[in-house]
Design a protein around this nucleic acid. Structure first.
Length: 441
RNA sequence: GCGGUCAUAGCUCAGUUGGUUAGAGCACAAGAUUGUGAAUCUUGGGGUCGCGGGUUCGAGUCCCGUUGGCCGCCCCA
């Protein structure tokens, strides 16, 4: 046995695993539906250039990519954003705005495996296109929070850290830094949590040591954890862009507070996200205990649709991964035990009775009841045991005595009560019981 | 890509300084039990001890290599 193994980092879903996966998907779908997002899907295999165009060649190292039999350079999708930008870009002029879309799909990255990260994983992606203002962020962050709350998670379990790459760029510009310098600083800020002052060594190498005055201002900006603190820090600096940005912040946080979500959101300018394509608000969701990697991440990417060949089209989006969510739900005891039980279990006497039972079995199934019966002839004792273990609510008993009388026994497996009903009333009786319209005496 | 650690039945594990034909619990299956429930008892199937090589009279056990898992680093769309 075990001559063939799964490829490293790939997962198999036995029924109980699949049930848990589907539980997560179902609640994600339900949340997206209530927020008015429409589901879409797209190919798993894409032209390699779709990802090179956006992120540069070095990203290829983490792609599952190869040349297909037609000589095309292709890659398994590592994320959904470029794909959804293509979809939206191709029909941009025909889509009613705002475009609110979501999808659930599998993604692939050739990486070293770790807790909460494999080479294949599922993501819930939600995006809004065509809305440049913070109203789009409001809607998405609210949906993001709902996606976690629907499992029973609370503000004590997770929170969203909110930041803004534009604000950083405007601020650094006001401090007199140019674009390349600002980008390097953002890279340092991304690592500052882990590395401390060491994080700025790349900047020092490329542009010379950062003057202490600037360093101090950057670090105090980085330390901002609230809107009032942000306003105070920016008060000293004039500028239309900074003023307009601050107004967006007030709008966004005001709207989320009005929704009663302020306990889920924290201002944290230390979040800048690694991706170069983000252009405005960026946010990440984390568990409160902090022993898992990020639960979700997203932000605004106003230039990407155009970069990928579409028209200029503002966009915001986020993605949630299934692995960290599953770990968090297990940790908090919020992963239900999901067993699929039949509604009805048929207990069958012998070969003659089996043929008689099949008529009712098939009709009940056609009516939508989940029904099981033993495939082999078994002693009654065994069958009742199997019926109880199956989790069925009812047992239908097709024995020789019953059939001779033209009846079937219906047993309530929980109450251990049973009645006899005429053969032609079996379907109606089962329906009455299952819908709660009647009980067995 | 780097480092640490581990690998025995479907699962959780035991296996002594190297020594007969590698064990237990759970799970699965059959029977006791051909008309009424999760019990009990009996029995059974299931292992090239991750894979390959080496040392040895003899390796699950020691050595080397390799593959894979877990944890951390790098990275993280």
């Amino acid at each position: 046995m075990a001559t063939f193994q799964t490829l490293p980092g790939f997962r198999e879903f036995y029924p109980e695993d699949c049930a848990r996966r589907n539980h997560i998907f179902r609640l994600w779908r339900q949340s997206a539906g209530t927020y008015g997002f429409a589901e879409y899907d797209a190919p798993v295999l894409e032209p390699l250039d779709l990802y090179k165009a956006k992120s540069g060649n070095e990203i290829e190292a983490q792609l599952f990519s190869f040349t297909d039999k037609g000589g095309r350079e292709v890659a398994l999708r590592p994320e959904m954003t470029p794909t959804v930008c293509r979809l939206v870009g191709a029909r941009a002029s025909a889509l009613k705005r705002p475009v609110k879309w979501f999808s659930i799909g599998e993604f692939y990255r050739y990486e070293r495996m770790q807790k909460g990260r494999g080479r294949c994983f599922f993501q819930f992606n939600a995006d809004i296109f065509g809305e440049p203002g913070p109203e789009a962020e409001t809607e998405l962050i609210a949906l993001l929070i709902q996606c976690f709350r629907s499992f029973g998670l609370t503000a004590d379990d997770f929170y969203v850290r909110l930041s803004d790459r534009n604000l950083w760029f405007y601020y650094l510009e006001a401090l007199g830094l140019d674009q390349p310098q600002a980008r390097s600083i953002l890279g340092a800020i991304d690592k500052y949590d882990k590395l401390g002052a060491e994080a700025f060594s790349d900047y020092a190498r490329d542009f010379g040591a950062l003057p202490p005055v600037l360093m101090e201002k950057i670090l105090s900006f980085l330390a901002i954890k609230s809107l009032p603190a942000l306003e105070a820090q920016l008060a000293a600096l004039a500028g239309e862009k900074l003023g307009a940005r601050l107004a967006d912040w007030k709008k966004l946080l005001g709207a989320l507070a009005a929704m009663g979500l302020e306990r889920f959101v924290e201002v944290d300018l230390g979040v800048v996200r690694g991706l170069a394509y983000y252009t405005g608000f960026v946010f990440e969701a984390f568990d409160r205990k902090g022993d898992l990697r990020a639960l979700a991440g997203g932000g605004r990417y106003d230039d990407l649709v155009e970069k990928l060949g579409g028209p200029a089209f503002p966009a915001v989006g986020f993605a949630i991964g299934d692995m960290t969510v599953a770990l968090l739900l297990e940790q908090r005891g919020l992963m239900p035990t999901l067993i699929q039980s039949p509604d009805v279990y048929a207990v069958i006497g012998g070969a003659q009775e089996r043929l008689a039972a099949f008529a009712d079995i098939n009709e009940l199934r056609a009516c939508g009841f989940r029904l099981e019966y033993p495939m082999k002839e078994l002693a009654f004792g065994k069958q009742f045991k199997a019926a109880a273990e199956s989790g069925a609510k009812l047992a239908l008993i097709y024995g020789g005595d019953e059939l001779a009388k033209g009846v079937v026994k219906i047993r309530d497996l929980a109450q251990r009560t049973e009645i006899e009903v005429p053969r032609d009333q079996v379907v109606a009786s089962v329906r009455d019981f299952m819908t709660g319209a009647s009980r067995l005496a």
